Structures are given as C-alpha cells and as structure tokens.
Simulated assay, not measured.
Amino acid sequence: MPIDADDLPGYAGRLHDAAAQHPQVMRFLAWYALERAERPAPEIVARSMDEKIAAIEAAQQRGTVTSDTPAGEILALVLTLANMWEHHTEDVSHLVTDAQRRTIITDAVRRLVTPHEPARG
C-alpha cells in the first residue's frame, strides 16, 4: 500500500480496508512474523520501511505531521492501529461494528499525527 505521509489517517484507513478485504494476507503476515522470529527483516522489507519513514520525515518538515514524535515511531503506531482489529478474536472484535473500526482507526491516527498549535500567552 503506497504511503501518503500527508494523509496518514487515510493511509491507515486504506490499510484497514485492505486487511478486511483480504484476511488471507493478514494470516500470511502473522505466519511470516512467526517464521522470521528474531531474524532481521529482509532487505526489501527494510528498504520499504526506510522509504516510509523518510516520507513521514518529509511531511514533518513540511509541517503536515507533528514533529513531537520520531517518524519511525509514528510509522509503527500507524501500522499497529491500522491492523489492530485483525489481530483479535471475537473477545474484543464484537465491541464495535466494522464501520466503527475504520473511524476509530482514522480518528486515532489523526490525533497522533496532527501538529499542535503553539500555546498563545
């Protein structure tokens, strides 16, 4: 999924939608994580993550994403939020509807990445 660092809430929403539409991909990724264990990520995965971090850093420099949090941490949080419902069983999945899940994710990412206005005093 191509990242749009100037619209991280939309990016998270699209990731969520893709996971919901293709649950087999999420199962594959879970299996991949188990098999890979503590080994370093393959070069192609590491490069993809580096490119996403660079895109977020550029958005931070443009002022469209907060600079309060390092870009790598923002990426990790966005990816986790986007896929959080896919990793839970019915014990928590039933708490909200499918439509609510996307809104919860995009709202949380928006709050996470929106730059704060300086206090006036």
Rank of each mutant, 00 (worst) to 15 (best):
G63M: 09
E43P: 03
A33W: 04
A5D: 01
Q61V: 14
P42V: 01
M26Q: 05
L79W: 00
V78C: 05
G13R: 00
P23C: 15
R62Q: 09
L75C: 07
L77S: 05
V25K: 05
A41M: 01
P42G: 04
A58Q: 08
H87E: 12
A30G: 03
M49R: 09
V96K: 10
A59K: 00
A46G: 05
M1G: 08
A19N: 06
T103C: 13
L75M: 08
A71V: 09
P115W: 11
R36G: 04
D107A: 15
D4A: 11
R110D: 14
A59L: 09
H94M: 13
V45D: 09
V45H: 04
M26Y: 06
H94R: 15
D91E: 14
E73Q: 12
A108E: 06
V96I: 14
V45R: 01
A55V: 08
E86M: 12
R62K: 11
V109N: 04
E35T: 10
A108V: 11
M26S: 10
I104C: 00
L15D: 01
L77C: 07
L95Q: 12
I74A: 07
E51M: 12
D7I: 03
G13H: 00
I44P: 02
S48P: 02
A30C: 03
Q100S: 15
G121P: 03
F28D: 02
A76T: 04
L8M: 03
E90A: 12
I44Q: 00
R120N: 13
Y11M: 01
T103P: 03
A54L: 14
L112P: 01
M26F: 09
G10I: 02
T66C: 06
I56Q: 05
A37M: 07
D17P: 01
Q61R: 09
G63F: 09
R101K: 15
L75P: 02
A71D: 06
D91M: 14
L112G: 10
V92D: 10
P115H: 12
T97M: 10
L95V: 15
M1Y: 07
Y32T: 04
V113I: 15
T66Q: 03
E86A: 15
L79F: 05
T103G: 13
I74F: 04
I44V: 14
R47S: 15
A20K: 07
H16A: 05
V78D: 02
L34I: 10
K52H: 10
T80M: 14
I105K: 00
S67F: 09
P115Q: 12
T64C: 06
H87M: 14
D107G: 10
A82M: 07
S67P: 04
G72Q: 04
I105H: 04
P23I: 13
A37H: 09
R14K: 00
V78F: 01
V78H: 05
L75K: 02
E86F: 10
I53C: 06
L79A: 05
A37E: 03
A119R: 07
